[in-house]
């Protein structure tokens, strides 16, 4: 990046990341690579966690957010329990996912999380079928891959068609709305 190293995106990105609890820990990264060596998803990531952190520390947030790395994190926490510097790497991946909502291209995992969220906010509990419907609408190819499995689960009585909503669904929704409102202010 040369002379561009501290562009506005970098300052904005770093500031946001440093503000999350534990986010400032990233400064301590010594690039040992224990995280990438421990990561079950690293083979399909654009950058392993170690290289992603080098990009973060270098301020290249355009490259960070155009990568799929943080979206692909499966939250296994292997990196977190093994990091010799005690960096809460999984939590930093979560923070990057949240920051990416407002920018950058949407990755398949983002559709999945949003499908989950919409399904939960409908009834207060997750309907797996609702989530799948919402996800497959965005990523129809994945529906074809899973048709035969779906039929097998159906035959075993393992698909639930009717999820009972919370008795206090209205109150539950008010709580969620309030939380979103508070978060929007901060």
């Amino acid at each position: 990046m040369g002379s561009n190293a501290l562009n506005t995106s970098a300052i904005w990105g770093l500031k946001e990341l440093l503000a999350i609890p534990g986010g400032d820990q990233i400064i301590k990264c010594i690039q040992c690579g224990t995280c990438t060596g421990s990561c079950p998803m690293a083979p399909v990531m654009d950058y392993g966690p170690r290289r992603l952190f080098a990009l973060v520390k270098g301020g290249d947030f355009d490259e960070v957010f155009s990568s799929n790395t943080y979206w692909i994190c499966a939250s296994c926490y292997f990196c977190t329990v093994r990091c010799p510097r005690g960096i809460k790497i999984t939590d930093i991946m979560y923070a990057l996912k949240r920051m990416a909502q407002a920018r950058g291209p949407q990755e398949k995992a983002a559709y999945m999380y949003n499908a989950f969220k919409e399904a939960v906010e409908g009834k207060g509990r997750l309907s797996e079928l609702k989530m799948m419907q919402k996800y497959y609408k965005k990523v129809p190819m994945d529906a074809f891959k899973n048709t035969s499995l779906g039929l097998k689960l159906l035959a075993k009585g393992r698909l639930e068609f009717k999820v009972e909503p919370l008795k206090s669904l209205e109150g539950f929704r008010r709580v969620i709305e309030k939380a979103k409102q508070i978060e929007g202010q901060s």
């Binding site: 949240r98 979103k180 978060e183």
Partner: peptide
């Protein structure tokens, strides 16, 4: 909320 909400909205 599982892993989905930590990915989307921290307070929720």
């Amino acid at each position: 909320g599982a892993t989905a909400y930590f990915s989307l909205d921290e307070l929720v």
